[in-house]
Design a protein around this nucleic acid. Structure first.
Lengths: 224, 224
DNA sequence: TATGATAATAGACTTTCGGCTAAAATGATA
DNA sequence: TATCATTTTAGCCGAAAGTCTATTATCATA
């Protein structure tokens, strides 16, 4: 297995948790996960990762400038971008500026393991569909002036191990007292954990929480 | 579009609802949906359908005998079987006894539309994987003696239109009073609807209901 | 060691939920 | 018309949920 250290950027907390769990099962070393590239840059300035997995649906110039910053901090860092759209993808920004892989999220399951290992070994990866579409609209618009790094909009701290346990039981339809029995804590404690989960997931009740979690395919083997 | 009348058998209520919504969007005419083949037989004796979509994970001799009954009632009826496993599939029972299609449920999305239309036009459909596997273990064990048709185990009546509306709002994380506001009914009525939904889905609270519904991909465009 | 951040724990209080029973109004169908 | 399913309303009660505040435990770092 790869011993490379991985950073992960995804503005969706549950997506981070899900991917992290998945990759850690595959023996990858996730050194950090962030809700914004800005946060990732701050972390990179202290401890450098070998591979950075960036999920971003909006691939504007700001993103590429932030990626450029990442490459400046560690020119050897491998960047893997996953995105739902092709719209803003610009090969003159991505390919030339050192993105190692560009993966279009689709219905199919992404084989992160293979992509990461290939990238670590110096290969470039791009979806076939993506590649064909991309090499048509090569509208290169290089801008050298930097813009300010956007503030992180909605801060989502990560779920603790205990909270993940509780969330799993919530999805299983367990009540607070059932959860308490299962992991041997008081009902009040279970309620407190649930409350913290609701806050972190930015929802108001457990129904919304479990729907979000189930839709994010957390606790599942596959990784969207 | 096909004007053929369709019956549907699936012991999972939510799967029936989901498939029904999907097929009706595709302009198919679903004349009835049943939780057991026995119920379907009873219906066939009154009003005959042209196509019967049977989902059954356990394909034992009983199932094939029930299918034989269906074919007796209407020899021209087209039978489509969907199943998760290959285990009990027996070509000598299925192919010979007039099953028009056999579809192995997998990760991929099943194109019911195409299959049904082909079947109506007299074609036979079988998954490639299924077909190759099947034509190896041809253990023909024909038994002519009938067994009694199994009782329907857990009766699940279908959700009404209003209940489907409410379920959708439950999935959206709405509370009873919010649901009441949204569809202009009293909170008590909303509670009554929710209560009925819980009973019909065989769950004890709304959390379990929404998890079941989300996992069944109800209200989604795709049909597992 | 001290300190500060994070996590886990818990009790008090208010609101919401779910089960139960009952019943009226609507609408389709035999 | 009679009948049946659906939709609607209501109140009561105990259980569960959610908010708030607060204490203890753990762990890393100054």
């Amino acid at each position: 297995m790869t011993t490379a250290s991985l950073y992960m950027v995804d503005n969706c907390l549950l997506a981070r948790i899900s991917k992290k769990r998945f990759l850690e099962k595959a023996n990858f070393n996730i050194s950090g996960d962030f809700s914004s590239i800005s946060d990732c840059i701050l972390a990179m300035e202290k401890n450098q990762a070998d591979v950075i997995l960036i999920d971003s649906d909006l691939l504007d110039t700001n993103v590429y400038k932030e990626i450029e910053l990442l490459k400046r901090i560690n020119p050897k860092v491998k960047i893997i971008i996953t995105s739902s759209f092709l719209n803003d993808f610009n090969p003159s920004n991505a390919l030339c500026d050192g993105v190692s892989a560009y993966v279009l999220k689709e219905k199919e399951v992404i084989d992160y393991k293979e992509i990461i290992e290939n990238v670590v070994h110096g290969e470039f990866h791009m979806d076939i569909e993506t590649a064909t579409e991309v090499f048509d609209n090569t509208t290169a618009e290089k801008e050298e002036n930097f813009k300010n790094i956007p503030e992180k909009d909605n801060f989502e701290s990560s779920l603790t191990q205990r909270e993940l346990e509780v969330l799993k039981l919530m999805i299983d339809g367990k009540t607070n007292s059932q959860i308490a029995q299962e992991i041997i804590i008081s009902t009040n404690t279970a309620k407190a954990h649930v409350g913290n989960i609701l806050t972190k997931l930015s929802v108001t009740d457990r129904v919304q929480a479990v729907v979000k979690a189930v839709r994010a395919n957390i606790f599942e083997e596959k990784c969207f």
